[in-house]
Amino acid sequence: MQHALPSPLELFLAADPVVKGVMLGLVLASLACWTIIIEKLATIRRLRREAKALALAEAGQSGAAGLAGAVLGAALPEWRRGQGARETDGEYRQRLEVALRRPVAAAMKRAESGLPILATTGSVGPFVGLFGTVWGIMNSFAGIAASQDTSLAGVAPGIAEALFATAIGLVAAIPAVIAYNRFAVALAAVRQEAMIAASDLALRLSRAAPVGV
Protein backbone atom coordinates (compact mmCIF):
# COMPACT_ATOMS: atom_id res chain seq x y z
CA MET A 1 0.00 0.00 0.00
CA GLN A 2 1.44 3.36 -1.00
CA HIS A 3 1.38 6.29 1.39
CA ALA A 4 0.80 9.84 0.16
CA LEU A 5 3.75 12.14 0.55
CA PRO A 6 3.30 14.75 3.29
CA SER A 7 2.68 18.29 2.10
CA PRO A 8 5.25 21.04 2.72
CA LEU A 9 2.94 22.52 5.35
CA GLU A 10 2.72 19.18 7.15
CA LEU A 11 6.50 18.83 7.10
CA PHE A 12 6.87 22.33 8.51
CA LEU A 13 4.31 21.86 11.27
CA ALA A 14 5.86 18.57 12.36
CA ALA A 15 9.41 19.92 12.44
CA ASP A 16 11.47 20.79 15.51
CA PRO A 17 11.25 24.46 16.63
CA VAL A 18 14.84 25.11 15.58
CA VAL A 19 14.21 23.58 12.16
CA LYS A 20 11.03 25.63 11.87
CA GLY A 21 13.04 28.79 12.56
CA VAL A 22 15.53 27.81 9.85
CA MET A 23 12.72 27.18 7.38
CA LEU A 24 10.99 30.48 8.17
CA GLY A 25 14.26 32.39 7.81
CA LEU A 26 14.95 30.79 4.44
CA VAL A 27 11.42 31.47 3.20
CA LEU A 28 11.71 35.12 4.21
CA ALA A 29 15.11 35.36 2.51
CA SER A 30 13.63 33.83 -0.64
CA LEU A 31 10.74 36.32 -0.63
CA ALA A 32 13.22 39.19 -0.18
CA CYS A 33 15.30 37.88 -3.08
CA TRP A 34 12.32 37.61 -5.41
CA THR A 35 11.28 41.15 -4.48
CA ILE A 36 14.77 42.35 -5.38
CA ILE A 37 14.77 40.32 -8.61
CA ILE A 38 11.51 41.87 -9.80
CA GLU A 39 12.69 45.38 -8.85
CA LYS A 40 16.07 44.91 -10.57
CA LEU A 41 14.47 43.66 -13.78
CA ALA A 42 12.46 46.89 -13.98
CA THR A 43 15.45 49.03 -12.94
CA ILE A 44 17.82 47.57 -15.53
CA ARG A 45 15.22 47.94 -18.27
CA ARG A 46 14.75 51.59 -17.29
CA LEU A 47 18.50 52.29 -17.09
CA ARG A 48 19.04 50.80 -20.54
CA ARG A 49 16.47 53.20 -21.98
CA GLU A 50 17.99 56.12 -20.10
CA ALA A 51 21.53 55.24 -21.23
CA LYS A 52 20.35 55.29 -24.85
CA ALA A 53 18.64 58.64 -24.25
CA LEU A 54 21.85 59.97 -22.71
CA ALA A 55 23.78 59.01 -25.84
CA LEU A 56 21.42 61.27 -27.85
CA ALA A 57 21.33 64.15 -25.34
CA GLU A 58 22.45 67.60 -26.43
CA ALA A 59 23.27 70.82 -24.63
CA GLY A 60 20.25 73.01 -24.12
CA GLN A 61 17.89 70.06 -24.39
CA SER A 62 14.74 70.79 -22.43
CA GLY A 63 12.51 68.31 -20.68
CA ALA A 64 15.22 65.64 -20.31
CA ALA A 65 14.31 63.19 -17.59
CA GLY A 66 15.96 60.34 -15.76
CA LEU A 67 19.68 59.81 -16.24
CA ALA A 68 19.97 62.26 -19.13
CA GLY A 69 18.29 64.99 -17.09
CA ALA A 70 20.55 64.36 -14.09
CA VAL A 71 23.69 64.37 -16.24
CA LEU A 72 22.74 67.54 -18.11
CA GLY A 73 21.77 69.21 -14.86
CA ALA A 74 25.20 68.47 -13.42
CA ALA A 75 27.15 69.36 -16.56
CA LEU A 76 25.49 72.57 -17.72
CA PRO A 77 26.77 74.78 -14.85
CA GLU A 78 30.34 73.70 -15.65
CA TRP A 79 29.77 74.20 -19.36
CA ARG A 80 28.30 77.67 -18.89
CA ARG A 81 31.32 78.67 -16.84
CA GLY A 82 33.30 78.06 -19.97
CA GLN A 83 36.95 77.22 -20.37
CA GLY A 84 39.30 78.91 -17.96
CA ALA A 85 41.99 81.25 -19.24
CA ARG A 86 44.74 78.90 -18.05
CA GLU A 87 42.82 75.72 -18.78
CA THR A 88 43.81 73.56 -21.75
CA ASP A 89 41.24 71.96 -24.01
CA GLY A 90 41.97 68.60 -22.43
CA GLU A 91 41.57 69.93 -18.90
CA TYR A 92 38.31 71.62 -19.82
CA ARG A 93 36.94 68.45 -21.38
CA GLN A 94 38.07 66.43 -18.36
CA ARG A 95 36.30 68.85 -16.00
CA LEU A 96 33.09 68.45 -17.98
CA GLU A 97 33.51 64.69 -18.11
CA VAL A 98 33.97 64.45 -14.34
CA ALA A 99 30.78 66.45 -13.83
CA LEU A 100 28.86 64.24 -16.26
CA ARG A 101 30.14 60.96 -14.85
CA ARG A 102 29.20 61.80 -11.26
CA PRO A 103 25.40 61.38 -11.73
CA VAL A 104 25.99 58.19 -13.71
CA ALA A 105 28.04 56.70 -10.88
CA ALA A 106 25.41 57.72 -8.33
CA ALA A 107 22.60 56.17 -10.39
CA MET A 108 24.50 52.92 -10.82
CA LYS A 109 25.31 52.76 -7.12
CA ARG A 110 21.62 53.09 -6.31
CA ALA A 111 20.82 50.38 -8.86
CA GLU A 112 23.24 47.98 -7.17
CA SER A 113 21.40 48.14 -3.84
CA GLY A 114 19.98 44.75 -2.95
CA LEU A 115 22.61 42.76 -4.82
CA PRO A 116 24.47 41.93 -1.58
CA ILE A 117 21.30 40.26 -0.30
CA LEU A 118 21.19 38.07 -3.40
CA ALA A 119 24.86 37.21 -3.02
CA THR A 120 24.52 36.41 0.68
CA THR A 121 21.42 34.27 0.21
CA GLY A 122 23.01 32.42 -2.68
CA SER A 123 26.18 31.60 -0.76
CA VAL A 124 24.76 31.04 2.75
CA GLY A 125 21.28 29.63 2.02
CA PRO A 126 22.36 26.00 1.37
CA PHE A 127 24.47 25.94 4.53
CA VAL A 128 21.64 27.34 6.65
CA GLY A 129 19.34 24.66 5.23
CA LEU A 130 22.00 22.03 5.90
CA PHE A 131 22.22 23.21 9.51
CA GLY A 132 18.46 22.67 9.85
CA THR A 133 18.81 19.21 8.32
CA VAL A 134 21.64 18.19 10.65
CA TRP A 135 19.75 19.48 13.66
CA GLY A 136 16.58 17.65 12.62
CA ILE A 137 18.42 14.37 12.02
CA MET A 138 20.12 14.67 15.40
CA ASN A 139 16.70 15.08 17.04
CA SER A 140 15.38 12.10 15.08
CA PHE A 141 18.20 9.89 16.29
CA ALA A 142 17.68 11.12 19.84
CA GLY A 143 13.98 10.22 19.53
CA ILE A 144 14.87 6.78 18.19
CA ALA A 145 17.21 6.15 21.10
CA ALA A 146 14.56 7.22 23.59
CA SER A 147 11.74 5.14 22.06
CA GLN A 148 13.88 2.16 21.00
CA ASP A 149 11.94 2.17 17.72
CA THR A 150 14.37 1.62 14.84
CA SER A 151 11.78 0.85 12.18
CA LEU A 152 11.75 2.87 8.96
CA ALA A 153 8.29 4.14 9.80
CA GLY A 154 9.62 5.66 12.97
CA VAL A 155 12.74 7.18 11.39
CA ALA A 156 11.43 8.43 8.06
CA PRO A 157 9.16 11.30 9.20
CA GLY A 158 11.89 13.04 11.19
CA ILE A 159 14.44 12.67 8.42
CA ALA A 160 11.95 13.95 5.83
CA GLU A 161 11.26 17.04 7.92
CA ALA A 162 14.99 17.64 8.32
CA LEU A 163 15.75 17.23 4.61
CA PHE A 164 12.96 19.67 3.80
CA ALA A 165 15.11 22.42 5.35
CA THR A 166 17.90 21.71 2.87
CA ALA A 167 15.39 21.76 0.01
CA ILE A 168 14.15 25.19 1.07
CA GLY A 169 17.77 26.40 1.30
CA LEU A 170 18.41 25.31 -2.28
CA VAL A 171 15.14 26.84 -3.50
CA ALA A 172 16.20 30.15 -1.93
CA ALA A 173 19.84 30.00 -3.06
CA ILE A 174 19.65 28.89 -6.68
CA PRO A 175 17.53 31.79 -8.03
CA ALA A 176 19.56 34.23 -5.92
CA VAL A 177 22.86 33.07 -7.43
CA ILE A 178 21.54 33.12 -11.00
CA ALA A 179 19.96 36.55 -10.53
CA TYR A 180 23.05 38.04 -8.89
CA ASN A 181 25.34 36.93 -11.70
CA ARG A 182 23.00 38.13 -14.44
CA PHE A 183 22.30 41.47 -12.77
CA ALA A 184 25.98 42.11 -12.06
CA VAL A 185 26.81 41.58 -15.74
CA ALA A 186 23.83 43.65 -16.94
CA LEU A 187 24.59 46.57 -14.63
CA ALA A 188 28.25 46.55 -15.66
CA ALA A 189 27.21 46.74 -19.31
CA VAL A 190 24.76 49.58 -18.63
CA ARG A 191 27.41 51.43 -16.60
CA GLN A 192 29.88 51.17 -19.46
CA GLU A 193 27.32 52.35 -22.00
CA ALA A 194 26.30 55.30 -19.82
CA MET A 195 29.92 56.28 -19.11
CA ILE A 196 30.76 56.22 -22.80
CA ALA A 197 27.69 58.35 -23.53
CA ALA A 198 28.76 60.80 -20.81
CA SER A 199 32.27 61.02 -22.27
CA ASP A 200 30.90 61.64 -25.76
CA LEU A 201 28.58 64.34 -24.43
CA ALA A 202 31.50 65.97 -22.59
CA LEU A 203 33.46 66.04 -25.84
CA ARG A 204 30.56 67.64 -27.71
CA LEU A 205 30.06 70.21 -24.96
CA SER A 206 33.75 71.11 -24.91
CA ARG A 207 33.61 71.91 -28.61
CA ALA A 208 30.43 74.00 -28.38
CA ALA A 209 30.24 77.58 -27.22
CA PRO A 210 28.58 77.97 -23.80
CA VAL A 211 25.17 79.59 -23.74
CA GLY A 212 23.48 81.53 -21.01
CA VAL A 213 20.37 80.50 -19.19
Rank of each mutant, 00 (worst) to 15 (best):
P103K: 10
P103E: 04
V104Y: 00
V104K: 04
V104P: 00
A106Q: 15
A106Y: 11
M108K: 11
M108V: 00
M108F: 07
M108T: 00
K109Y: 06
K109V: 02
K109G: 14
A111V: 02
A111S: 11
A111F: 06
S113K: 15
S113R: 15
G114W: 04
P116E: 07
P116Y: 05
P116D: 02
I117Y: 09
L118A: 02
L118V: 00
L118R: 06
L118Y: 00
A119C: 09
A119Q: 13
A119Y: 06
G122M: 04
V124Q: 11
P126C: 05
V128R: 05
G129P: 07
G129H: 09
L130K: 11
L130S: 04
G132Y: 05
G132V: 02
G132D: 01
G132M: 06
T133K: 10
T133N: 11
V134D: 03
G136C: 09
G136W: 03
G136E: 07
I137R: 14
I137P: 06
I137Y: 06
N139T: 05
N139P: 00
S140F: 02
A142Y: 09
A142I: 09
I144P: 06
I144Y: 09
I144E: 08
I144S: 11
A145E: 06
A145T: 07
S147Q: 13
Q148I: 01
D149N: 15
D149T: 11
D149A: 14
T150V: 12
S151F: 06
S151E: 11
S151M: 10
S151A: 08
G154N: 13
G154D: 05
V155L: 13
V155E: 01
A156F: 11
P157W: 09
P157Y: 10
